[in-house]
Write a protein that binds this DNA or RNA. Structure first.
Length: 279
DNA sequence: AACCAGGTTGACG
DNA sequence: CGTCAACATGGT
């Protein structure tokens, strides 16, 4: 077990960050801390009084102390200056309200393959069911990487190799419906090296988007989610049913130009606001 | 019983 | 180019 304390410039709200529809494998424990399954690790996260984040991390493939810290700083995108972002966004009345409604959201840099498969599952689906399908997938095809407080086993997200080896019949227990085919084809594309995180990160957002759109089950919305959550392109802008409503009522002429370079981060505040504030 | 959920696809004008 | 039904599943 390794303890890591992160010091974000601006306090992070773990509940808002983990419950805003970007990550599906964090859950709140009875004690108030969060339990997360992140790239082979079992992590518990809690907010400290001074705005720091305390992480307790377990797993067989942990890096050394410093590398592990860098991993988590990257995961929480501590290189992004949220204080400056908040200051700039406050020029826009709607964004200002959205940020006040749930301050401390951060767009996480998650694993590419997990984001790809998870957001393929997300199409025409709801968040509780996405979670349950992903959990079943990990339980069936992931590796056991630890246990929770009650002794229940915890599983990693399946590797591309494992998913690529399956047939559609194997996915039936997930109850993912017609998404089965897209899940397997995407896994095979990654496993074969036809598509890879390294390539997509190196070629810029427009090139990466074009590649992603070639995959079955990846249309405009899922592609933006993978760009934003799985590849760290913060300019990506997913437009789902909720965001379409938000855009129609608040930004009929589009987002303000100064927001565009980080449109994905603005989107995350607006999405959470639109879904949870009953405006 | 319709309708919806972090949509995409293939067919048809 | 744009529009549109069909698509699995489970919840309201």
């Amino acid at each position: 077990m390794m303890e890591i304390v992160l010091h974000p410039g601006l306090p992070v709200s773990l509940s808002a960050t983990f419950d805003c529809g970007q990550a599906f494998r964090w859950r709140k424990m009875d004690c108030g801390a969060f339990l997360g399954l992140v790239q082979g690790r079992v992590a518990t996260a809690r907010e400290l009084e001074d705005g720091a984040i305390s992480l307790h991390v377990k797993g067989s493939g942990l890096l050394g102390k410093e590398a592990e810290r860098l991993f988590w700083e990257d995961y929480f995108a501590l290189d992004v200056d949220y204080a400056a972002l908040h200051l700039a966004y406050a020029r826009d009345g709607v964004l200002k309200r959205a940020m006040a409604f749930s301050p401390g959201i951060r767009v996480l840099r998650q694993d590419f393959f997990e984001a790809l498969i998870t957001f393929i599952i997300s199409q025409n689906n709801n968040i509780p069911r996405i979670r349950s399908i992903v959990e079943k997938m990990c339980m069936l095809f992931g590796e056991e990487i630890g246990t929770d407080g009650c002794g229940n086993p915890l599983f990693s997200f399946p590797t591309p190799k494992r998913l690529a080896s399956l047939e559609t019949g194997d996915l039936a227990p997930l109850r993912a419906g017609y998404r089965d085919r897209a899940i397997l084809e995407a896994a095979r594309s990654v496993e074969s090296g036809e598509i890879s995180s390294g390539l997509l990160k190196s070629q810029g957002i427009d090139g990466a988007r074009k590649e992603l759109l070639k995959l079955r089950g990846v249309g405009p919305k899922v592609a933006e989610c993978v760009l934003l959550f799985g590849l760290g392109y913060f300019g990506a802008f997913p437009l789902d049913t909720w965001m379409k409503k938000v855009m129609a009522s608040f930004y009929p002429g589009g987002l303000p130009a100064f927001v565009m370079p980080t449109a994905g981060i603005a989107q995350q505040y607006l999405f959470h606001y639109g879904r949870n504030s009953h405006i």
